Amino acid sequence: MKPTDVFCKCENRQFTERQQGLLINEDHVLVISDTGLTVWTYATEEGRIIVDSDRDTIILSLDLNDLNKPQNLEAAKFAKMSFPDFIQYLLSWDGGEVDVGLKPGDHVYEISEGFISRVEHVHPNGSITTTAGNLLAKSDYHILNEEELVLVEKLAKSIRTTCDMADGYKVGTLIVESNSVYLEGEHGKTELQPYDTIEVYNGEQVDRLTYDEVQYTFSNDGWPAYAGLRARYRPIVLTPLTKEDFKR
């Protein structure tokens, strides 16, 4: 690292503030301020190191005024770290984005809570935000491998099926024939009726379809488009009217 002056253009202000810094590489500079240490992207203008808050981004920071920022999470794991500790931390970090092999939509295991969560955003230092809004440092989660993902999907499918059956649905696979639509599952093979509402699983959602849509929608190859898909329906119980019903 090389000591340098850093000229910081402050957001929504009309002046440039000079601060001390350390050049990490040709893309990143460590800025030393009164409240902490921050790694920024930067540009060189007229031989000066310029950090423009409207253009550049924070990659990693230890800001004593805001330790809850995503960029702070990994550094905050060391809590109360000294300046030499933080420099040592930076030396072990390659100065760029941490490739954790994750993307939004992937699943991770939260080590401390024992939860399986879906990733909403991956931050440059490897910390993540989950869809539940939790910020996790790289050391706080475990990336699920392929076998674990298959197990999670099977478990989620089983739990969802159990919940749907408890709510009165029958769950199974759609079978579409020339004049009939069936749902085959643990309950056996049930012929559906034109008045039944059919819901086809689509990821974590269900698409509600009419009997005719299932019966008469075809793929480009001419095969029933919904045949073989997992679906559910809630049986409608038709009770014959009696003389007592007409007296009401």
Results as ranks from 00 to 15, higher is better:
143 I>S: 08
143 I>V: 12
144 L>P: 00
144 L>Q: 03
145 N>I: 06
146 E>Y: 09
147 E>N: 08
148 E>I: 06
149 L>W: 03
149 L>H: 06
149 L>C: 11
151 L>A: 14
152 V>I: 08
153 E>Q: 14
154 K>F: 05
155 L>Q: 10
155 L>T: 11
156 A>W: 02
156 A>S: 08
156 A>K: 08
156 A>Y: 03
157 K>F: 04
157 K>Q: 10
157 K>L: 07
160 R>M: 07
161 T>N: 09
162 T>F: 11
165 M>V: 14
166 A>W: 07
166 A>M: 10
168 G>A: 06
168 G>V: 06
170 K>F: 09
170 K>S: 07
172 G>L: 05
173 T>Q: 08
175 I>M: 07
176 V>G: 00
177 E>P: 03
179 N>Y: 14
179 N>R: 14
179 N>D: 15
182 Y>N: 04
187 H>Y: 09
187 H>N: 14
187 H>G: 09
188 G>C: 09
190 T>F: 05
190 T>C: 13
191 E>M: 11
191 E>G: 13
193 Q>H: 15
195 Y>V: 14
196 D>S: 11
196 D>Y: 15
200 V>L: 03
203 G>Q: 03
204 E>W: 09
207 D>Q: 09
208 R>N: 11
211 Y>N: 02
215 Q>N: 10
216 Y>W: 14
217 T>A: 04
218 F>I: 01
220 N>A: 15
220 N>V: 13
221 D>C: 08
223 W>T: 12
226 Y>L: 01
230 R>C: 00
230 R>N: 00
231 A>W: 00
233 Y>H: 08
234 R>I: 07
